[in-house]
Design a protein around this nucleic acid. Sequence first.
DNA 1: CTAGCTAAGTCTTGAAATGGAACTGGGTCA
DNA 2: TGACCCAGTTCCATTTCAAGACTTAGCTAG
Lengths: 159, 159
Amino acid sequence: MELGQCQKIDMRWNELRSEKCSLARTLSVIGDRWTLLVLREAFLRVRRFEDFQKNLGIARRVLTERLAHLVEEGVLEKHAYQERPVRHEYRLTQKGLDLYPALMAMVNWGDRHYADAEGPPLVHTHKSCGHDFHTVTTCSECGEVVDPRAVRVRPNIAS
Amino acid sequence: MELGQCQKIDMRWNELRSEKCSLARTLSVIGDRWTLLVLREAFLRVRRFEDFQKNLGIARRVLTERLAHLVEEGVLEKHAYQERPVRHEYRLTQKGLDLYPALMAMVNWGDRHYADAEGPPLVHTHKSCGHDFHTVTTCSECGEVVDPRAVRVRPNIAS
DNA sequence: CTAGCTAAGTCTTGAAATGGAACTGGGTCA
DNA sequence: TGACCCAGTTCCATTTCAAGACTTAGCTAG
């Protein structure tokens, strides 16, 4: 239990958390090099420490720390899949599943701008309609595709 | 011009770049604590070094490095807005604007899970339809909202 | 002409995070 | 008994980061 020093997940991340900006707050949870890759694995059904570690080549101490942080934030939950010895797995919670649009938006961007000749590395199929697809970002009110130039931002009066 | 040592943008980020995974590639460009905040500012129409620096409180050397990286990747472009003395501003390119869905997905997640009592910090209005909105992630083929559990993934045959 | 100002960096230094690899500890397998 | 598995911990050298003073080039006010 001599983890005290390093465990205190960086002051600066906590500063992010307390900013009045949803992006900053989101980044305080998932905004580092490894966390999103851990989540990628989680969405690909990886659940165990060893598997995350092998797939990613991440330093074990860093993995420990990231998983703990995600559990703390309620993005993953730690679930014992056997006693003697106790072994845990990490599963996405609903809050974690809610990150899907963010992950897919990044995957899409990579597909569009960094795919090599053979096309994107992964193909996604929508079981509901049976087609290969990519995600599209639309307006909750009119359903049209959103162009950033067609958006106006203002501070919430109350805040 | 004694920047040589630090300028070589970390080996590990280049490793990410060369992985056969669109998320990894995307992260090699925007996957660090500060870059996404820089982009937030850019989407809020900030264009100058000094303004990024003041708004974010980011270390100047780090800002220099991040802006250079984003320019190198074609996400921002550096544009002289005056000669004598030469002064530059950083503008989002189309490739940069394409990151909007990713940014908004994260903002949405923050709005949903970390808004405080008064509601989310910023309100977004869709000029096209005139309503306040949030983004919704839909399937390019059937137009329905995408549930991660309804998606199957497979490697692209060619890759 | 000199001091001060601005924008956009650049340099230095100490603190923190990371990568890598070995070690721990409960428990199974042969 | 010895080898192996999983899920961490610990240690150490290397890398990255934060903070802020310093630089450069060209104004501008006195």
